[in-house]
Every structure is written in structure tokens, then in C-alpha cells.
């Protein structure tokens, strides 16, 4: 089992670690939003972040690709090591980091461009100009995001014309197009109907193994269904982290148990 933090020496049957968070503190101005988070996210697995709203799970997710940088007055202490590099070290290129760590947002945010241009946006940014190569990437990404069959005949229409669920899968395809290793998802299905949610969950299951996925969700059942590991956040602290199965059946912590059984939040 995985303990809170990284105090435990790595064991043989431990999965390979993709993201290693060490004593992370995070501040919005003077307000401390995250306290001393220690967590090792295993490679190729799905890790769910749960907790009541305002508990810091989304803030934590956004520290992993430094999206919090764009908010003024924030400050980070501690280390986040991804693929053996501290991503907050001064010499780190945020652009390369975000290329490796893709993100899918709560509300689907396709750009007001064609489906093709949406997916091609990332590769173009990273310098791919060859039309055939772009076409190949777009098709591969759309196939991988399980939306190709629905849109292959109308790649030129605006991404905004798709349904909410399709938009979200388009956004996933867009994230996959820059070939990341890690995929961060911030409540990706919270704005969707049950059927679309089902498709997103199926897609997460498909992507598992090829990508390390960290997903924030407020939906306990969803966490139980899609994730291998679960982290429970409360008031900016990581209360408990471990295999999903165990967290949901035998939580070590009273607060975790109360939350999972629906006594608060």
C-alpha cells in the first residue's frame, strides 16, 4: 500500500512513480491553500482527487502543470518532481512542462475554430507545419478520444457546434494531440449529462495505461469507478491517499470515512 507522503522507502511491488510531490505548500497571497502535501502519483494509473468544494483539490491539480502561475500573487513552496525534474526549479521551461502534462477543464472549452484547427492548435504551436503530418495527428488524436467516427465527415465545422459531451472529448483529443505523458482532468464530466459522462468514463478507462491520469471529481461513485488510487483532500490538507479499493472500503481516517459515506460535503 502507499502511505501518505514519501516517507516509506519504495518497495518492489510498488508501481513506478510519475509525479512525486514533496512537502508542497501553496499560497494565494497570504492565504495558504495547500498545507504540506506529500504524494506519489503512480505511472500509467488513474488517480482521483476527492473532497468537499474548497478543499484544495483543484488548486493542487493546477500546481502539477503550473497553471496557477497565471494567477497573480500565488506562491509555491516544496517540490514537485515529474520524470526526475523539479518542475518549480528556476531553469524549468513551463512550455515544455505543459506539453508533457496536458489538461482538460471542467467546462468544455473548445476554441471557436473548426474541429480540425482545435486539435491542430497544439502541434502547430510546437512547430509542426506539414499539412499531412497535422492531418495524421488530428485523426490519431480524435480516434484516441473516441470521437473520430462522429466528426470525421465534418472536421471543418466549428467546435462550438458539437454537443457538450462531444466538446469535452474534442478537448481531450486536443490535449492528446501534443503527445503528453500525463493528463490532468478537472471535473471533466461535471457539466455533462449521464450518457456523456459514461462515455468520458469509458474513455478514461481506455487511456489508462498509456497515460498517467489525475482526475478531480466531486462524484464519489465516479472516483470509485474510474480510479486506481484516490486522494482525499480536506481544508487544504491531504488527509488520506491510497488504493481506491481500500479507501472506499477501509479508510484509515475518520474524516475520510465520514466524507465517503456522505456524512458531510
Amino acid at each position: 500500500m502507499v502511505m501518505i507522503g514519501n516517507q516509506t522507502p519504495p518497495q518492489i511491488d510498488e508501481p513506478e512513480i510519475e509525479i512525486d510531490v514533496q512537502n508542497l505548500d501553496f499560497y494565494y497571497g497570504k492565504h495558504q491553500a495547500l498545507h504540506d502535501i506529500c504524494m506519489s502519483v503512480p505511472k500509467g494509473m488513474v488517480t482521483a482527487l476527492i473532497g468537499p468544494s474548497g478543499c484544495g483539490k483543484s488548486t493542487f491539480l493546477r500546481t502539477l502543470n503550473r497553471m496557477n502561475d497565471i494567477i497573480g500573487g500565488t506562491r509555491v513552496e516544496g517540490k514537485i518532481v515529474i520524470q526526475s525534474k523539479d518542475i518549480y526549479a528556476p531553469n524549468i521551461d513551463v512550455v515544455m512542462l505543459r506539453k508533457r502534462v496536458g489538461m482538460v477543464f471542467q467546462k468544455p472549452n473548445p476554441f471557436p475554430k473548426s474541429i480540425f484547427e482545435n486539435v491542430a492548435y497544439g502541434p502547430r504551436i510546437h512547430g509542426i507545419k506539414n499539412r499531412a503530418q497535422l492531418q495524421e495527428i488530428v485523426e490519431r488524436s480524435l480516434v484516441r478520444a473516441a470521437i473520430w467516427d462522429e466528426v470525421k465527415d465534418r472536421l471543418h465545422i466549428s467546435g462550438l457546434e458539437l454537443s457538450g459531451g462531444q466538446q469535452q472529448r474534442l478537448c481531450i483529443a486536443r490535449a492528446l494531440a501534443v503527445d503528453p505523458d500525463i493528463l490532468l482532468m478537472d471535473e471533466p464530466a461535471s457539466a455533462l449529462d449521464p450518457r456523456s459522462t459514461q462515455r468520458i468514463e469509458d474513455l478514461i478507462a481506455e487511456l489508462r495505461g498509456d497515460y498517467t491520469i489525475v482526475i478531480v471529481t466531486h462524484n464519489m461513485q465516479q472516483a470509485a469507478r474510474v480510479s486506481d488510487y484516490t486522494a482525499f483532500f480536506y481544508e487544504g490538507h491531504l488527509i488520506e491517499f491510497g488504493k481506491t479499493e481500500r479507501i472506499f472500503t477501509k479508510p484509515n481516517n475518520k474524516q475520510t470515512e465520514d466524507y465517503i459515506t456522505g456524512r458531510f460535503g
Partner: peptide, 10 residues
């Protein structure tokens, strides 16, 4: 729109 683009490494 800004976040979506930045998250892709732009």
C-alpha cells in the same frame, strides 16, 4: 480560451 491554450504548452 487563454487557459486552454496555455495548458497545451503555448
Amino acid at each position: 480560451m487563454r487557459e486552454g491554450s496555455l495548458a497545451l504548452g503555448a
